[in-house]
Design a protein around this nucleic acid. Structure first.
Lengths: 194, 194
DNA sequence: TGATAAACGGAGAATGTCTCCGTATTTAAA
DNA sequence: TTTAAATACGGAGACATTCTCCGTTTATCA
């Protein structure tokens, strides 16, 4: 009886699997950017030169694929939170970061599914990004709260949801501008009156 | 040569057409409420007891159907704006109406397309509802601005977009609560400091 | 080098959208 | 009434998309 246990030594992942994964991500990124969130998955597979089965094995759902495509950008955004927290006033850092967030979602023009995964927080599967994002904004907010600038009865993610709404629901050419204006409204709205 | 002109007297619309239209609307409303925005159109037609062709003749696109389904509620909401403006303080009226708006979108859990049509304002087709909605909120805002309570550099629709974002992007059970909290943040954010 | 786990790919089932057109029904004129 | 013309009906089927299944291929490791 051979060992079939959990102790199985991790075998090195197959080279072709890694290659295909990367090709799929590149192709998908281009496809989403060009055709929007509804881009055909089979076509992405074909363009990437793999079968549909391969795509679905790597990314079981459309959301999973989007999540993976944007994980990079998400990580950069999360990193920025730490940097800002170290170099700016509490409220200033929060404001700056929210502006970065607006850029982040504007780049995904109308990619509702992706936003929902990342900022929604309801989908079990993508909790990784959501969790990171949540921690990033929570850190900025709690710093601002501690400094006495900001009320504390806020769900930080709600700020992001509001911005996502403004930036993506209209998706007009000035959606981004509008979202940046909204940042100031939000900041003013959560500030404690002096 | 018979008259083939534009002067053709309007013929009374066929009774079966009217009946089917209504049945389709009722069925669609139930279907959207139960299965969300992706409900199968063919199934709606089948449930309503008509052929697919009939559905598509009455409502050429999914959006057209949604628009029609929600036109009623939209009209009620618009009417409420006038009523509130007549009976409440400027800021109070605005706040009340935004709360009603939250109920309005919460009922459409995740019906992104519909929201986008109605609050987005980019789709030519649904400009009727958008226009009404815009006028309703604009009236409330400008009253508040006139009273000196509120800044005037606001696109009124942005407030709605923000609320839609909070209420629908997460779509969690407390999305509605969150949106109601957001109303207060927004009101505070657009208020002029005293 | 050979055994075997891992990955591949694409045919095809399932589902959905939307069109086309022969048939049926309604209206209104005679 | 009867009848012709206008209007609406419905569902078969063309087409697109998602996703699964499984026989075949390939990389890893002993």
């Amino acid at each position: 009886m051979v060992d079939e246990g959990k102790t199985a030594i991790a075998r090195k992942p197959r080279a072709d699997a890694q290659r295909n994964r990367i090709r799929l991500l590149e192709t998908a990124k281009a496809a989403f950017a060009e055709k929007g969130p509804g881009a055909s998955l089979d076509e992405i597979a074909r363009t990437a030169g793999v079968g549909a089965g391969t795509l679905y094995r790597h990314f079981p759902t459309r959301d999973a694929l989007m999540e993976a495509v944007y994980r990079n950008e998400t990580e950069q955004l999360v990193a920025a939170a730490t940097r800002l927290a170290d170099t700016q006033s509490p409220t200033g850092a929060l404001r700056e970061w929210l502006l970065l967030f607006v850029d982040y979602i504007a780049a995904k023009h109308g990619m509702y599914e992706a936003l929902n995964s990342i900022v929604g927080g309801t989908t079990e599967l993508y909790s990784a990004s959501t969790e990171q994002m949540k921690r990033a904004i929570a850190k900025l907010i709690s710093r601002a709260v501690a400094s006495g600038d900001v009320r504390l009865d806020i769900d930080p993610l709600d700020l992001l949801r509001a911005l996502a709404g403004v930036a993506s629901i209209s998706a007009g050419p000035d959606g981004k501008q509008a979202a940046k204006r909204m940042v100031d409204i939000l900041i003013a709205g959560i500030r404690i009156r002096t």
